[in-house]
């Protein structure tokens, strides 16, 4: 749910990184945080819990600068990936304006990717939203593993599993090295800001 503050000329959008457990959602945010200029990024919020899994969510507020006099602020959220945290995942998804689906290329996680995307679709429907109508970008993460002996899925396989219906933009990435992280964020930011402004501002500001 976007928030548009006409008095301060601010637009707030919420982008949620979704995906199965341990696919690298939090790593994406950490990477964005560490490489962005101080004036553009806010304080990264992680809820400290034992272990390296996200139990609730991570939040990174960003300031994208001004477009036609409107200050664009984006809040990046991650959801907990593990299947059992379904309730929390749904909570974080509340009011999302844009989505990044982070896919795990490990052979053994193939089913998890498909399940997670289905879960995303179901949860959105419960908020009355259709996945097809939302700004969405898919990131094929962990491409750095391709050259290792660990069995991974090819981009074609991932494409067939996850993107055959949507045909949305996809990015190959390696969140640990930073490859593809910004490209993903840039694309989803554009789509999301367009989506929100199309809905509310365009016709008023012209």
């Amino acid at each position: 749910m976007a928030l548009i503050d006409l008095s301060k000329k601010e637009i707030h959008c919420k982008i949620v990184y979704y995906g199965p457990g341990r696919c690298g959602k939090t790593t994406n945010l950490l990477n964005v945080h560490s490489s962005m200029a101080d004036n553009a990024r806010g304080k990264m919020l992680t809820i400290e819990t034992k272990g390296d899994r996200t139990l609730f969510f991570d939040l990174l507020p960003l300031n994208l600068g001004t477009i036609r006099g409107f200050n664009i602020r984006i809040q990046l959220y991650t959801v907990p990936g593990q299947v059992m945290y379904a309730a929390t995942r749904k909570l974080v998804l509340k009011g999302a304006d844009g989505l990044v689906f982070v896919a795990d290329p490990l052979q053994v996680r193939r089913e998890r990717n498909i399940e997670s995307l289905e879960d995303l679709r179901t949860n959105l429907l419960e908020y009355g939203l259709k996945l097809e109508d939302m700004p969405l970008v898919i990131q094929y993460n962990k491409r750095d593993l391709v050259d290792t002996p660990i069995p991974t899925l090819t981009v074609e396989e991932l494409e067939a599993d996850l993107n055959s219906a949507f045909k949305v933009k996809t990015f190959e990435a390696s969140a640990v090295t930073g490859m593809g992280v910004f490209e993903t964020l840039r694309e989803i930011s554009k789509q999301t800001v367009r989506y929100v402004t199309n809905k509310h501002l365009l016709h008023e500001t012209k």
Binding site: N31, I67, G178, V181, R186, K190, V193
Partner: peptide, 19 residues
């Protein structure tokens, strides 16, 4: 305009990421 603004914002970092 949106694309330009976002490209501008990300380009310096995207060009030289130091993760």
């Amino acid at each position: 305009e949106i694309d330009d603004a976002i490209d501008n914002l990300f380009s310096p970092q995207a060009a030289a990421p130091q993760p």
